[in-house]
Design a protein around this nucleic acid. Structure first.
Lengths: 266, 266
DNA sequence: CAGAGTTTGTCGCAATCCCCACATCCGTGC
DNA sequence: GCACGGATGTGGGGATTGCGACAAACTCTG
């Protein structure tokens, strides 16, 4: 593979132990794995030295040791969205399947980033044609973009790795220039006050989407009912429809009493 | 290639190929790395068989190969089903290594999407701290975003799957609201007229970045000299510096005669 | 049933890695 | 100066892995 012959940035001078270990974890941010032999060449030290570094980092739990090198530890990498995407797959797939039935060719959708909505987008990319998706999630864009008949518009802003999407005032301002038929958004919790989530920046994006869409469908699994996050996204009346996987517990049925958010069970 | 040998659950003694590979990725959800030898023992097959499985998964980008095993992929890294990213890695890595030496902490960079610039961003994410990156590439954003000390601003627009980035008038308009120290851009070709590329929409993004940056560095491999694409991006004088991997052929040396674009060989 | 194609096993050698013991270098404090 | 501990380099034996080539077993199809 890529040799490092008298490497440019590496031969500056001898790095100390700390500097080497920092470089190793940095390298693992760019590449999923590193090899001891390659690092030794790059640092201009012996493989034994690198081996000791890697072993030390491994003991600290910063990296995960492999035969011949090291890899990113599963937890340190993307505990956030990645882990969340792998739980409740069954339920979320049901929600997603149900949600696509409300979408028709020609629709313009706003979809916020999130684990549940990502299943929804995956189904959209498979089943539907001639729709436009406006989103702040690069994951959604990448998935939906594989379908050439789906037009994807990505919102700008500060990129937040944890959510794999853009956030900040730019997003809301950008969204205000568009108008959509529907907004499909997720939420961290759902009470009689309305949908809520844990982070203010997440809420602002969802709010902007709801504001600019003709109607709003909430995608939440049954575990979200009763959760109270930091901030309420919008009053209950602004939500047109709630799609979930199984009936909410009786104590939260009052949410749908007035029939204002329509309840759909996938 | 995409054949599923319809294995029912009756396979208790020996697992089929598909079942093994599924088990491997499942194993990787629990442990950050697996070893071929261990898997071979667990499955009751030869290490060669597991090696083939792992190699296959690695080619698909599902796992990342290590010496003696496999590791979880960084998810941000692999989605390069793009064959262009896998050629000239040697040359592009050299260019990227050279380019990072021109960047200092505190810099604000505009970087356009492209195969060559992606190597550059990867190095940036490893070696530098406290910089701001403004880009239209979701790949760049995902990679740079793993480094918490790098601020990433993503430009809006129509998402183009082929380029894994945003394009269209929105991009240029958005960029106009920022000001950067440097622009690092790639190009499909390079002649005495200046850098060029094959698609008008690509050119408009590059143009906007050059316009809004104090100086502009072009990252091109040696094969690009003499290529004439559809559209010239900007006159030669607007380019501050050209970084390439090996000296351009003599017939294209005139590009650098006036010393206006500085020539740097990585 | 035959034949083509796929999957897996076997074998051997070269390359690589691990581990251990010991030597060397260097800065620090006495 | 000198002892000392930490960090690093050296060298070799032993184990593991990678790779290519070939054969055996199996699957599918006509």
């Amino acid at each position: 593979m890529a040799r490092a012959p008298a490497d440019h940035g590496a031969m500056k001078r001898k790095l100390g132990k700390q500097a080497r270990q920092d470089r190793i974890v940095a390298e693992l941010r760019a590449n999923p794995t590193v090899r001891i032999s390659a690092l030794a060449r790059a640092f201009g030290v012996t493989t034994e030295t690198v081996r000791r570094d890697v072993d030390a980092l491994s003991r600290e739990g910063v990296v995960s040791r492999t035969y011949g090198g090291a890899a990113v530890t599963a937890l340190a990498h993307e505990p956030s969205l990645d882990e969340r995407a792998n739980i409740l797959v069954e339920e979320r797939t049901r929600i997603a399947n149900c949600a696509v039935s409300f979408v028709q060719p020609g629709d313009v959708l706003m979809i916020d980033s999130g684990a549940t909505t990502s299943h929804f987008v995956r189904r959209l990319a498979v089943e539907l044609k001639d729709i436009t998706i406006i989103t702040n999630s690069i994951g959604h864009a990448a998935v939906a973009g594989t379908n050439p008949s789906i037009k994807v518009i990505l919102a700008p802003g500060y990129y937040v790795a944890r959510e794999r999407g853009t956030y900040g005032p730019e997003v809301a301002e950008f969204l205000r220039r568009y108008r959509a038929n529907h907004a499909f958004i997720g939420a961290g919790g759902m009470t009689v006050e309305g949908p809520n989530d844990v982070s203010a920046e997440l809420c602002w994006v969802k709010r902007a989407m709801i504001e600019r869409a003709g109607s709003c469908t909430l995608l939440v699994d049954h575990g979200k009912f009763g959760n109270l996050g930091l901030e309420v996204i919008c009053p209950l009346e602004r939500v047109t429809r709630v799609i979930t996987d199984s009936p909410p517990p009786p104590e939260h049925q009052p949410i749908f009493l007035k029939g204002k958010p329509e309840l759909v069970i996938g």
